[in-house]
């Protein structure tokens, strides 16, 4: 398919599927450690696609790519820590 040859189109498709999964997890009321880790992983994958393909940081100086990916990791870790504290 010609559509899928463009990495931007592939990124959009994966982002749509990932959004549907998060919506579904909310719809069925998924809760607890597994659900939280899963949703954070999905958010990380989505964020990375936006950073690398939409923002075009894949070919940018590494520092910028790492700064933005690092932001995703930092935010994800802080959220995970806070949720872990709430589950104890």
């Amino acid at each position: 398919m010609v559509f899928l040859k463009n990495p931007i189109n592939r990124a959009w498709l994966v982002l749509m599927i990932a959004t549907a999964i998060t919506w579904y997890l909310g719809e069925v009321g998924a809760a607890g450690t597994g659900a939280i880790v899963g949703m954070l992983l999905i958010a990380f994958v989505k964020g990375r696609l936006v950073i690398l393909d939409f923002m075009e940081l894949r070919q940018a100086p590494r520092m910028w790519r790492l700064l933005l990916e690092g932001w995703m990791l930092l935010v994800g870790s802080l959220i995970l820590l806070a949720y872990w504290l709430s589950l104890r």
């Binding site: 998060t22 909310g26 998924a30 809760a31 949703m39 954070l40 958010a43 923002m55």
Partner: peptide, 22 residues
């Protein structure tokens, strides 16, 4: 464009955090 993508990126974290994660 980079600014617009950032707005998207922020929502990608905000949506699961505020609407879904429990």
């Amino acid at each position: 464009a980079a600014y617009w993508h950032m707005v998207d990126l922020l929502w990608i974290v905000l949506f699961p955090l505020v609407y879904v994660m429990r």
